[in-house]
Design a protein around this nucleic acid. Structure first.
Lengths: 190, 190
DNA sequence: CGCTCCATGTAAACTGTTACATGATTGT
DNA sequence: ACAATCATGTAACAGTTTACATGGAGCG
């Protein structure tokens, strides 16, 4: 159900169309929640029908009209209810870890390329987060003093940065392990 | 689709029943993939129908009979195919981060209890992982030298440990931020 | 002419959660 | 007697992914 709440938070930060939300889910909100445009349009339709959102048709020049959504009273209430209700601490879903354990029944060396690819992706994501942090929070252009919303956005971004740094360090550990195993026995085991 | 692959890896490590798999998904495999028994039974049924698994009825004394599943040739092939196919680097799903950003439109101080609860859960999980590491890998009972499968299980567990440590440190950062905001403005903003 | 961006959606398949259901054994 | 553990499932619903579908504007 958290997609609904993520959309409410994003629209409270700034109203926008389904398309714009989809873009945000590739960027800032996407640091901790992902959603495709198909999902977003469906949920927006439902939330508008439920009275949590209001739409405004916006005519544009040189591009298609868009529907700008913003949060209505009941939407704000639904978000407040959810914020006050405890949630379960997350459990991870990590495909790559499944692959690493699966490598025991295949060739561990064959995984090295894949792990390196993931390491590059995480390194790029870290660079992207750090650039965003400098632009919005720590650089000379950043607003001083920051308001509560900016402080909270920043602490979430610091979480993303910590996650990427941790992941890169772990992938280095994985690569070391795979190289050691590849040196030891160069074929499929088991 | 990774539940299927996680089941294949687990059954290659050791054949077992749906019930036993559900237990493993609360423990070792559960460090990086979760699944309920309902899901597991459904997928086991499908995989057996597809010829990826074979079942053996095992009579037991003092407890109900069970169906012991093990991986068939096509199952091993399906796993190998998946292992050689690149996967997308994961994107996070972190409800708590949605809540933290949402707190800008509610009372940040009201989130402190919830964050503390999550911190305790992660601290407990870390202790559990560390106990498992000592028991299976670094303690005096651990097999020496470890085989490839154990090395790979260990590196995945180290990833879980690093994740929990990072998360605890981040939650401390979040708590500092919330305390600072609570001291500054004691009501809902926006 | 083809590519990317803007903007919106539908449909089908699959995955995951919640609730319900049964029945024996072991321990308190 | 009651609760927990072992063991297996069904059914309904909610959420997610993948594929299909349309169409204009601007750039090289």
């Amino acid at each position: 159900m958290a997609l609904e709440h993520a959309i409410l938070v994003s629209l409270l930060e700034k109203p926008g169309s389904g398309y714009e939300l989809a873009r945000r889910f590739e960027r800032s909100i996407g640091y901790f929640w992902t959603a495709s445009h198909q999902q977003i349009y469906r949920v927006l339709g439902r939330m508008e029908a439920d009275g949590r959102l209001v739409v405004r048709e916006v005519e544009q020049q040189g591009r298609p009209d868009k529907k700008e959504y913003s949060v209505a009273g009941p939407g704000r209430g639904a978000l407040a209810d959810w914020l006050h209700k405890p949630i379960e601490p997350e459990s991870l879903r990590h495909d790559l870890a499944v692959k690493i354990r699966g490598a025991a029944f295949d060739d561990p060396a064959a995984l090295i390329r894949e792990v390196e690819r993931h390491r590059r992706a995480h390194r790029d994501r870290l660079a992207h987060y750090l650039a965003g942090e400098a632009r919005d929070f720590t650089g000379p252009e950043a607003p001083a003093p920051p308001d509560a919303g900016q402080e909270l956005q920043h602490v979430v971004l610091r979480g993303g940065i910590a996650y990427e740094r941790m992941t890169i360090a772990w992938l280095d550990d994985v690569l070391d392990t795979l190289h050691r195993l590849a040196g030891r026995a160069p074929g499929p085991a088991a």
